[in-house]
Computed example of a mutant assay.
Amino acid sequence: MAFSLKAESRKETTKSDIKQLRAKGRVPAVVYGQKVASTVITVDQKELLSLLRQNPHAIIDLDMPDGSGRQPVMINEIQRDQLNRGLLHVDFHQINMDEPVKTVVTLEFIGEAEGAKEGGIVQIQMHELEIRCLPNQIPSSIKVDISNIGLGDNLLVNQLSIPAGIEVKSDSNDLVLTVLAPQKETAVEEPANNEEKVGQAETSNEAATEGQPV
């Protein structure tokens, strides 16, 4: 899926000016690469947020403001507010479509694990996979069929089915998913035992006081 953003030029300004830009719905950014000199820009906040929700690692067709036309870029870094997680700044890296790039791709788990049908608990340990490939080969996600994973089984990176042309950069022995056996519940009978002890205590007291003067 192709994504596009229109960039607007900006000057290196004060913190007050940057704050006003954000208030107008613009996100300060910078774009750089082999074919693009480091350029400060702004992009529309709503459009960027929509892109991030769909695929934060996608290739973006960035319409440059300096007349250099459109350039393929990827997001290199995002700065967010620590309190409200609002977008503060974005770094875009211009890429060459004929050169491999390193990125991460979402793992999409499909099916129901056999172990889950037996009462097991599926625990996902890895949601994204680091890969290297040509930009036009980056998948929107990598599907992982977990239907054959049984109770107590693990799924490692080296067991994933990876599309041709993609090199996995994550450790091959990293744990992707595991199915834990259900914990056995132990019956608690303390209330019944307590009632029995109370009854025994009352009987003992009656026997101890029997025959004593009132």
Rank of each mutant, 00 (worst) to 15 (best):
H89D: 15
D61L: 10
G69P: 03
L83C: 01
V73C: 11
N96D: 15
R70H: 14
L62R: 12
A58N: 01
R85Q: 15
Q82I: 10
F92D: 09
N76H: 13
H89E: 14
H93T: 11
Q71C: 05
I75S: 11
L62I: 04
I75D: 13
N76W: 06
N84Y: 05
D98C: 04
I78D: 00
V73L: 09
L88R: 11
N76G: 15
N84H: 08
E99P: 02
N84M: 00
N96W: 00
N76F: 08
G69D: 05
I78H: 03
I75P: 09
R70A: 15
Q82R: 12
P72E: 00
V73N: 10
L88E: 15
D81P: 13
F92M: 14
N84V: 00
I59W: 07
L87P: 08
M64W: 13
N84G: 04
R85L: 14
G67T: 00
D91H: 05
D63Y: 03
N84K: 10
E99W: 02
P65H: 09
N84A: 05
P100A: 02
Q79N: 06
R85H: 12
E77V: 03
N84R: 05
M97A: 03
M64N: 01
I59R: 13
H57C: 07
E99Y: 04
N84C: 03
M64G: 00
D66H: 06
L88F: 06
I59F: 09
R80G: 06
S68I: 02
I60M: 09
G69N: 06
I95V: 15
R80D: 15
E99N: 04
H93L: 13
V73A: 07
L62F: 04
V73E: 11
D66E: 06
D63E: 08
I78Y: 06
E77S: 12
